[in-house]
Amino acid sequence: MERPTDDWLLRVEGLSKRYGPGCPSCSRLTGPEAGTSQCPRCGTVLACVAAGLSLRPGEVLGIVGESGSGKSTLLQMLNLAVKPDSGAIWYAEPGGGTPIDLLRLNAYSARRFRNDRLGIVHQRPELGLNMHFSVGGNVAEKLLLAEWRHVGKIRARTSELMAQTELPVERIDDAPGTFSGGMLQRVQIAKALASRPALLLLDEVTSGLDLSVQARVLDLIRRIQWEEQITMLLVSHDLGVIRQLARRTIVMKSGHIVESGLTDQIMEDPQHPYTQLLVSSAL
């Protein structure tokens, strides 16, 4: 089925994921009004319910919500790491081409797509990095998957990425375990950028970092967004982080998208009770 692109990179329709058997009362007893995503009757978690969004090439979209709101589930579905129960993820390669539904790709093509067109940075570096390989090896993994077969060229590109992400290039062969938390986020960013992805997924990338380190990582992300005009999806519980980077924001609660809009509108004129609470709770 073909879709008009209307100049979007990614278009998500009715994406849902639940964990558990489900019962007739699930949708009535969960959601933002009920204040939970877990059905009290059958225990099923409706982690993400009918999520829809679209991303234009080069834009940064923020997803904000508390833990358990479903924002990470949504991100993992977009990362093709969690399989949704229903919905579609349409992807249109910039510069034309027929949009494809990523959920219809077979496992092999999906992994290929994930490597070539997606980059992800996790909150916890050990989820995104193999701690047994060197930092250079971790970054090289994406290049090797893209069939780079020249060690010299791989190391040159890896060094370039390390320099771009302000990592000490001379430590290319060191183990990730010897790097600080902020540096490991940079390594993840370098790895994510290696394949020049169309979409970068950022999952709470600065949570758990010292404030000064947080600021530098955010500066780096902003600079890269600026230089590469890369499309980003930024998940955070912190409106401050979202405001710095995203021009549009989606607010999630208990598995549902409760509000979406321009970031300044979300901040200055929030509509949903939860968003008003969120904005008023900012430090």
Binding site: G261, L262, D264, Q265, E268, D269, Q271
Partner: peptide, 9 residues
């Protein structure tokens, strides 16, 4: 102004 700029709905 904010309504024109759409900071307010």
């Amino acid at each position: 102004l904010k309504c024109i700029y759409r900071s307010y709905l």
